[in-house]
Write a protein that binds this DNA or RNA. Structure first.
Lengths: 137, 137
DNA sequence: ATAGATTTGGTACTTTAGTATGAGTTCATT
DNA sequence: AATGAACTCATACTAAAGTACCAAATCTAT
């Protein structure tokens, strides 16, 4: 948030300076009117795009994976892999094949994931994981 | 897409007209320099925000529910309700309680959903449904 | 090197999920 | 009024998921 305030402050100063420069450049006749107007137009267009993009990124960032959250929950690397496979719609047997381990192992991992995500079913675990921003989409 | 082209055409004309107007307003001295520059600045800032917003909406819209897709797949209203409950992480028994019907009925609906979404597990059905943009997130 | 966490895997069991099939009910539409 | 689609429910299965315990191998950091 401090960063935002700083950026807007600098921006405001830059705009004021630009306006003054433009004004005197016009009065003294150093620049053509078209050029000044065009420059101002491009400058503010870019600023508009930039600001809107910042707002947009703030929204979208809420849908990105939160590694800190994964650590906080205590999910191990392997458990998280299994969670990803579950969320992709695979069965225990399929996950076992993908990760080259037995189905028993997957069941153990799955049960641990349920404990850590406080859920009783894989669909519920996936839902919780999304709420905690540790799964994409 | 036609709409986009039309909008940009009109916009280009408006910009040209505005530039010419500004130029002559300045030369004839009808307007102060500050006002013209400020107006141009605001105008292009707004355009910048607008265009960026359009791009953003095109991206985000891919995450909205596609009712046409639901119809195309042939999911009935009840089947879609069950799909939503499944995606929320509820068991067949819980869904039955929420919708005030028997678990048998839910099983029937679930099986029909699987047929229509070409899937064998509820997690897979949920995944497919998201790819088809008929589920949020 | 060793304690602690992770990963792996097994057995035995219970619980859900999912399939197949049939059938009665409701509801909108022709 | 009849037809078809949607909704309902049941029985009887099979298959998959999930639980509870135990135990060995491996990795990791002190």
């Amino acid at each position: 948030m401090k960063k935002t305030i700083l950026i807007f402050g600098v921006l405001a100063l830059a705009i004021l300076a630009l306006l003054q420069l433009s004004k005197y450049a016009l009065i003294t006749g150093d620049l053509k009117i078209e050029l000044v107007i065009g420059g101002i137009a491009i400058f503010f267009f870019v600023i508009g795009v930039f600001i809107q993009k910042r707002l947009r990124n703030d929204e979208v960032s809420s849908q990105e994976i939160d590694q800190k959250q994964i650590d906080a929950i205590g999910l191990s690397k392997r458990e998280y892999e299994v969670l990803l496979e579950m969320a992709s719609g695979y069965s225990n047997k399929e996950i076992a094949a993908h990760l080259f381990v037995s189905e028993s192992t997957i069941k153990t991992h799955v049960s641990n994931v349920f404990l850590k995500l406080d859920s009783k079913r894989r669909t519920q675990a996936i839902q919780r994981a999304k709420e905690l921003h540790i799964l994409p989409f």
